[in-house]
């Protein structure tokens, strides 16, 4: 288990504060950050991955700065910038940059199979769809056997079945002791998280177990869309209703 701490973290680009006064302390499980576009989710993940440094405050992984913990961390961005000429296997090999042995190879094969991408081995990325590229990068990231997995929009571009598969993998990794930190938009999927963080306009507005935090009133305020709760076969389901803005848009 890896402990991730945000201590009074703020991050500024020029004059604009992207995130402000963030305090988060997670040490295990599946932790999901949700919030509207531009709320600062990606910024939080990039801070943990050590890609950017906080303007104020500090981010710690097991008590040390992120640059000290890289070997046990895997990061998958929301926006991929892979070389289209590279093959799926090149991606995995590049991801194993700091590995000491070749054990990632077997692990990568296994993850490709689990994600239904076994057929893609050896193929160039430009021959894959956006969703398939994401699954390939996910397999490569997982083949690092990370103790801290940072994933931005792990379900983006995926069909329903692949969304379920990825969510189950994240759930299982968390149960096995990997600390998972994810940002996502799929409010329905968030029920499977251990802890949810709601970010709005750069500030943390709520955190806790899904049952505590996923409240129709709060989500309605945060997203500006009315949520309504329905009774599903295994509990309450929150579904958004169409917005007034959309209605006026079609007039």
């Amino acid at each position: 288990m890896v402990r991730v701490q945000f201590r009074d973290v703020s991050y500024r680009v020029r004059e604009r504060w992207i995130v402000r006064d963030i305090n988060i302390d997670v040490a295990e499980g599946l932790n999901v950050i949700i919030g509207p576009n531009g709320a600062g989710k990606t910024t939080l993940l990039r801070l943990v991955a050590g890609i950017i440094l906080p303007t104020k405050g500090e981010v710690l992984i097991d008590g040390a700065p992120p640059s000290r913990a890289r070997r046990h961390v895997a990061y998958m961005p929301a926006q991929l910038s892979l070389d289209p000429l590279a093959t799926v296997d090149d991606v995995a090999e590049a991801m194993s940059y700091d590995s000491l042995d070749g054990s990632w190879k077997q692990s990568f094969r296994r993850w490709l199979e689990v994600l239904g991408m076994g057929w893609a081995s050896g193929r160039p990325l430009m021959s894959l769809s956006s969703g398939e590229q994401r699954l390939a990068l996910m397999a490569a990231a997982l083949s690092r056997s990370p103790r801290l997995l940072i994933v931005d929009e792990p379900l983006a571009f995926l069909d329903v079945r692949n969304q379920m598969t990825v969510m189950e993998i994240l759930r299982e990794l968390a149960d096995e002791g990997v600390t998972v930190l994810a940002a996502m938009h799929e409010v329905l999927m968030v029920r499977r998280a251990d802890k949810v963080f709601i970010l709005s306009a750069g500030r943390l507005v709520a955190s806790g177990q899904p049952s505590e935090v996923l409240d129709e009133g709060l989500l309605s305020v945060v997203y500006g869309v009315r949520f309504r709760s329905y009774q599903g076969p295994d509990g309450e389901v929150l579904l958004p209703e169409s917005t007034l803005q959309l209605k006026s848009f079609s007039d």
Binding site: R46, A49, G50, I51, S67, R70, V73, Y75, M76, P77, L80, S81, L82, D83, A86, D90, V91, E93, A94, M95, Y97, D98, L137, I150
Partner: peptide
């Protein structure tokens, strides 16, 4: 060479690997 190879992942991921 090994560092150059990580660039195919994109600058962000390469940086997250410590390159």
């Amino acid at each position: 060479a090994r560092r150059i190879d990580t660039l195919l992942l994109g600058d962000e991921v390469a940086t997250s690997l410590g390159v």
